[in-house]
Design a protein around this nucleic acid. Sequence first.
DNA 1: TTGCGCCTCCCCAGAAAAGGGGATTGAGGA
DNA 2: TCCTCAATCCCCTTTTCTGGGGAGGCGCAA
Lengths: 215, 215
Amino acid sequence: MSPTTIKVSIFDDHLPLREALSLLLNGTPGYQVGGVYGDPVNLSEKIEANIPDVVLMDISMPEKSGIEAVKELKGLFPHIQVLMLTVFEDEERIFQALCAGASGYMLKNTPPAQLLQAVREVYEGGSPMSPSIARKVLGLLQKFGGKPHSDPYNLTPRETEVLSQLTRGLSTKMIAAELEISYETVRSHLKTIYDKLHVASMTEAVAKALKERLI
Amino acid sequence: MSPTTIKVSIFDDHLPLREALSLLLNGTPGYQVGGVYGDPVNLSEKIEANIPDVVLMDISMPEKSGIEAVKELKGLFPHIQVLMLTVFEDEERIFQALCAGASGYMLKNTPPAQLLQAVREVYEGGSPMSPSIARKVLGLLQKFGGKPHSDPYNLTPRETEVLSQLTRGLSTKMIAAELEISYETVRSHLKTIYDKLHVASMTEAVAKALKERLI
DNA sequence: TTGCGCCTCCCCAGAAAAGGGGATTGAGGA
DNA sequence: TCCTCAATCCCCTTTTCTGGGGAGGCGCAA
C-alpha cells in the first residue's frame, strides 16, 4: 500500500525541538508539517487556519497546559488525533492527558523512526505509547478494575452475598427469593451488615459498597 | 548491547500455532522456547518444571480459561511476565486479562517480527499491545476516569442533584433538608427519577446511578 | 395567548424497611 | 465439654418509601 501523507501540527514551547520535528517530518515521505506553534493560545484559530490530521502536543507550555489544550481541541475537532509528546511520565499527568482525549503518549526521548511510526499509528486509529507509559496505563487500569477491597469490614460470606444482591438493586423480598432463604433471615443479615458498615439503610449500604468496591 | 536470551513458554490449544511459535522463537537468536502446552491444567507443575521469563497465553483453552491461568500464574510467580496472544478483542476480555495480571496483549494476526519485538518488550518491562487493543484500553481508562455519563436519561438539573444526594446515602428527609426544599418535593423528584431510570426504589436508583456513572 | 417543562408543594393508602427484641441449629475451637 | 459464631427464622412497632392522585407558579417558545 502507498501510505497517505499525514499532516502534522506541533505544539511545543521548545524552539529547537519544534525545528527538529519539522525537519524530520518534512524530510520523510508520507509526512507533512502543518502548523508549528510555541503555545496553544487561540488554539481554535490556529487549528482552523491549517487543519492537521495529527497534533503533537507537549504538556508544559506557557499560558495553557497541553492537557487543557487537548480537551479544547477534542471538543472542537473530535476527528483530529492527538499524540502527546512530553517528558512527563507520572501517572497523574498520563491519566489526565489520556482522559482529556489524547490517543497516544510518547516520551520525548523516543528515537525518530519510532516517533514517525507512532504518528502513523495514531493516524490509523491505534494508540501508540512508549513502553514505560503503556505499563503505567495498565497499572492505572488495574487500579480501577482491581479486585474488590478485601473485606475491611469483616463481612461473612453470606453477608457479602446479600450485600452484592443489594447492589443489584434488589429488595429484601427479592433477595430472599434469590438466595432461597426467608425474608426474616435476609433482614437479619441486613442488620449486621448495617452494623458492620456503620450505615442505617439499604441506600447507604449500596452507596458505600459501590464506592468502596466492597463487592 | 547484546540482548539476553529470553525463555518463553507457550499455552495454546491450537497445535499448529504452538509449533509455528516454537519454530519462530527457537529459530531466532535471543529467544528460546521453554515449555509448550495445550492447556493450563496443573499450571504450577508445568511452570515449575521449566521456569520461563515470559509466558505466551491464549484465552480460549479447554478446561481452564487463559484469564484464570494468568491470575494463578501471577499469584505464584509474580516475576514472570505474561503476554496474552489471542483473537479476542472485546473490551470485556481485554479488561479481565489485563486486570488478572497480563502485561501485554497481542492479537494472533500480528506479524512474526512484531511478535518477537513484543516478547522482548514485555520482558524488558514494557506493555506491548496491538494498536486496536491499545485504543480500547484507552477507551476503558477514559470510561473510568472520564466525566459522568452525559445524561442518557434526560434528568433535569434538580433531578440530577437529588440523585447525587441519594448516592451519598441520604434519605428523602435528609435530602429535603440538604437542598432546602420540602419533603414532598424531593418525593416528587424521586418519582420522576424512577420513571426516567426505569427503577422502582432508592436502592435500585443508587445502584444504577453508581454503576453507570450518572453522577 | 397558549402551551410545555421544570420546580415546587400537598394528601392518602398500602408496602417496605428499620429497630428492637428473641430463638434454633450446626460447625469448630478452647 | 462448653462456648462462640455464622446462618437460619420469628414477632411487634415505628418509620420511611412507593404509587396514585392533584395543583400553583414561572419562564420560554410557538
